[in-house]
Design a protein around this nucleic acid. Sequence first.
DNA 1: ATTGGGTACGTTATGTTATTACGTTGGTCA
DNA 2: TGACCAACGTAATAACATAACGTACCCAAT
Lengths: 149, 149
Amino acid sequence: MPHPLSAGPILSGLTKNQALVLDTIVMAHKPIGAYEILGKLKPRGIKSPVQIYRAVNSLIQCGIVHKVESINAFVRCTHGHPHHGQTTILAICDGCGAVVEHHDDTVDRRLEAWARQEAFEVETVAIELKMRCARCSGLASLATTKTQV
Amino acid sequence: MPHPLSAGPILSGLTKNQALVLDTIVMAHKPIGAYEILGKLKPRGIKSPVQIYRAVNSLIQCGIVHKVESINAFVRCTHGHPHHGQTTILAICDGCGAVVEHHDDTVDRRLEAWARQEAFEVETVAIELKMRCARCSGLASLATTKTQV
DNA sequence: ATTGGGTACGTTATGTTATTACGTTGGTCA
DNA sequence: TGACCAACGTAATAACATAACGTACCCAAT
Ligand SMILES: [Zn+2]
Ligand SMILES: [Zn+2]
Ligand SMILES: [Zn+2]
Ligand SMILES: [Zn+2]
């Protein structure tokens, strides 16, 4: 039988390791790498990378965590309910690590149309933007313009 | 002065290492990782990973090679002319590694609109799909249906 | 012709990310 | 009971990427 959680979005069904890892990801408030998670969980008894990878993979399967491929890190899904086949779009600020999650049906339809045309079956889609958030680009311009009062 | 190549898409301006690496990527006919490139080029005198990474980074700068973030590999750009700020969309077949490259102005506009709305500055965009190509999904169904004659 | 800056190069070492392999534990159910 | 299965623990290793150093070469300004 698959893990109870996979039957629904019930967080209480997580195993101990999964709960520890999810908690660490949530606490980070920005994408966090597997080895950084490991560092934070060593005091709590987690000893090896494979324990982290097993847990994040489960959480990703459940749809409550996303992997940010472009930086090899993991982030809590901020979408209220599970994605119904909607593609996740993530924007990550280089400056502060802030992440914004988004969905766009038009984009999804365009990609689906392309897939039909090319006759391939889509398995997963990753859309990731690297950006400067308003706050970080604001800080940068303050630093250059010097006096903005 | 930047390398002559960066002034235009003139392949003849590549350095020796860049040409070797590009050649290896082209010969692969699918995404190829840095260490696999290294393996193939050892007989030709390349000895270390950094030589590969330096070359692929130059080629990526020039826009003639793309990095496939989701599998840490590199692939030749199949777009005729250089991308004019257009986002590259890559679909990679799990089965055989085939890559299809695409662009979609509508998708680009939707992402730009979102960025404006959220007030962040886009730096780079990566759109990657994992898929089964027609051939590979065909083979899979043959294997399961047994007799398709 | 010298000098200085910029670009690529070579070499070594190291850091970071991810998986393989194998044995154990603890539930579920015929 | 015992077959099964998912999760777990542990150790080793594979795969990916960069840091830090000095050298070689081209070119333009002095
Ligand atoms: Zn999400
Ligand atoms: Zn920011
Ligand atoms: Zn391209
Ligand atoms: Zn295929």
